[in-house]
Design a protein around this nucleic acid. Sequence first.
DNA 1: CCGGACAACATAG
DNA 2: CTATGTTGTCCGG
Length: 189
Amino acid sequence: MGLRLPELGPIQAYGTELNSVTVNIKYSVGDSALGKVVVAATDKGICAVSLRESDADTEQSLRHRFPRAEIARDDDSLHNELAAVLDRISGRRLDEPLPLDLQGTEFQREVWNQLLAIPPGKTRSYLDVAQAINRPKATRAVAQACGANPVAVVVPCHRVVMSDGSLGGYSGLPGVKKALLNAEGVRLA
DNA sequence: CCGGACAACATAG
DNA sequence: CTATGTTGTCCGG
């Protein structure tokens, strides 16, 4: 089994909740082989993981993403979360569950949950995922949901590739997708 | 094998 | 309503 979304997480109460209530979000920044990594979390779990934030943009982009939240850097309290994410990037602790606090539409959560079911080191096509959620024709919508994934690496959207075996996109960061898969031991054609 | 056309669909604006 | 996107399938060349 892979990761599991927490039942009490925003994954249920989302959207409106997070936007109508002022929540506290802490974030930490670290360095990986793939560049700067930003991990942000509420008291319920990780709500954002980004691989390409620049120092200057970090807090601003978090504010933009969580307009109503109280945001502050806190490397101490997020030490473990950051370490866990960094480990994953280097191919370690791939199966360790992490508490998540995500907000998204019903469709997006279905897709994300499906992604969490993909074993480390394995891949699925956008079509596979679409069929798994009972919408065989929504492959492109699945791709969009992947792109909307708030927590890179943790929800393994990088494990979704094209039906023909080729890499597929990754929000303009094909190198990152390739590297993540490589770290998991996935050999690309 | 490569390119073009089009189908199909959740979301953003 | 229109445009867009981490696709898929089919048809020519």
